[in-house]
Design a protein around this nucleic acid. Sequence first.
DNA 1: TTTAGGG
DNA 2: CCCTAAA
Length: 583
Amino acid sequence: MFGNVKDYGETFQDSIFQTRNGSLSSTNQIGNPVTYKLVRVAGDGSLVPATDEEMLEVKNLLEKNEQDMPVLPDPIQTEEYIPDEGSPSQFLQLENFEGFFQSETAGPYTENLNSRHEISTELSGNVELVPSKVLLQEPILFSSNGCSINQSTDVLNATASPKEPALSTAASKPDFSRVPGEISLANLSIKELQETFRATFGRETTSKDKRWLKRRIKMGLINSCVVPTTTLTINDSKLIGGDQDAIDAFSKGTVDEETATESIDTPASPDGIKGHSNDFGHSPVETFVDHYSGNEDFEGEDGSAKRVRKPTRRYIEETNEKQQIDGSMIPSKDPSSIQAVSSEGRVVVTRMVSLAGSRIQVPYVSHVRRSRPRENIMALGEFRSKSWEVKAAPEEGNLNLSPPQLSNDVNRVPGVKSASRCVQKESDKDHLKPIFTDVDQEMMEPELLDSSGDSSDDNFVDAPITQSASGRKLHRAWTISEVEKLVEGVSKYGVGKWTEIKKLSFSPYTHRTTVDLKDKWRNLQKASSSNRMEGGLKKHGSMAIPTHIMLQVRELAQKQSPISRVVSKARVVKRSRSRNGFL
DNA sequence: TTTAGGG
DNA sequence: CCCTAAA
């Protein structure tokens, strides 16, 4: 039930509470399958998970209220529940939900809630309560009303216990101790599951497949209510199947909001046989969010199913990085846990990881740092979907390598330099005829051969993969020749004319954007001005830049900033050209 | 889109 | 190297 909500806490000043636990509703029947998650509603409508303190505060509040307050009938207790907008105590007016979530007004948290009425009142303004219980009782009503809460709202993960048909109307005090662990689909019999299914979807099922039933039920519950949103700060929604550890962990806030609990997982086919569904059999926690929603699975069940946004590559990447750091997630080393699932026509490699005692699937990411940081096999999907204009080249055979083998290590090996230079990329199609031809470069810039920077950028085999995988350009150390070209370009066209320089002097280098040039120049300038590299103050990682270049840089930089730029430039160009034998 | 700067 | 504000 613990959706991981990205923490936008700092950005919001208001503190609104959402109570968790059905006890808020006056009657908390035993086995009340409803679970409310305590969250804070941010200014933009997104939900921020409650902190421990907040949880405690609310708890105390509620307990206090219990003492000096009569028990009121639970408005949504019965199946005959009818939304009554006139009654302030109807704090769970489904039809108001939409209003709730869209409400921009985020009033301050009321410290002294003395009665449920107050709570109710507050609710209409600031608090959002999503009763998941209703799902079981009034699936249709809820899904057509309360669940229409989408945009700019985050979702609450609902948990429900089929064992508790939510029939009890006996009023009871809040019982926080039983908040967790409502779910136990795992222990239900086929029949029970079928009943639950009926309660959830409003229709019978003859399926005898436990796994399938459980899956469907969970999906039905979640998807009919847990609706992804535009702001999508929920990173996960899944049902907890009686895994106390996980629940406790959550209660203690030990579950990192940013921890990846997302699963790029395609739900199994209805028959529960397809794909990797077997993995869920013994898993206390099952992820069932369909990020790709391309599946016909539950959508065929009830058309109300909403789609869940797929996590961004960036998110996954960072998420995985975090895992490595905080160790909150112990990635399974078991190779068998790694598997490829297909969705939306793509193939995604996932692996099982442990989170708070539960097992979930996350996109596979190699945890072995290679020469290049961040490799993500997600690229595989990207790679396959992209139509690379790979021209016949010896390296093309590498395309058949398995992803791990395509690691960056390959392109760092000097020897793998592409024998055949690739054609210019489309971005260069309209570039002016480069001053330096390939031949010139080969002759003038011999060091390019051993600098991975050069031709590897056109290496369609590895560069695109690793690059798209990380979503970030792979770092390429600047070679001396590149620096020289840069300096030369600056001297020719002037500082700041990056586009010109790029076009006229860097056309062969399909990487190195104008921004790169600018950045590099900035660095050079800094280096040349501030410290005199001589005294061994040079940074370890970078190569020593010939002093004559640095002098040039300094000179150019000096003439560029002061005044009379036009004059300076003219002189510079002149000098530069004569120096290079041009003109 | 291109530049300039901050991160 | 990335992201953005400006122009």
